[in-house]
């Protein structure tokens, strides 16, 4: 079983506040799921050729890295919960 401390550590990495109840449920759920993942240990290793193959292969579709004017900047900034002029406002960082 994954420990409470481990759950709290992962939640911290993920910037997620969990309640005591949620931590308890996560311990139980994640443990069962991670145990199930052990199945992969018995999976064969892919051949050398397969290992080198790219799964996606979409890189050739990338467009040129050219800036384009976006017409939506006002609306997008307008969606922010707190802003000042054209800037999104955030709380104190330190």
């Amino acid at each position: 079983m994954i420990s409470k401390k481990e759950v709290e550590h992962i939640a911290k990495l993920a910037r997620l506040e969990l309640t005591e109840n949620e931590i308890e449920k996560m311990q139980k759920d994640l443990s069962a799921i991670l145990d199930y993942f052990d199945l992969l240990k018995s999976a064969p290793l892919p051949s050398k050729i397969l290992q080198k193959q790219n799964l996606g292969g979409q890189a050739q579709n990338l467009r040129k890295d050219e800036a384009e004017r976006c017409q939506l900047s006002d609306e997008i900034i307008g969606s922010a919960p707190d802003k000042k002029d054209d800037y999104i406002k955030v709380k104190a960082i330190l």
Binding site: R15, L16, E17, L18, V90, K91, A92, I93
Partner: peptide, 14 residues
């Protein structure tokens, strides 16, 4: 919330 970090945790948590 007072700090940026707390906004992250709370907003995502809730």
């Amino acid at each position: 919330q007072k700090t940026l970090m707390q906004v992250y945790y709370k907003s995502r948590g809730e």
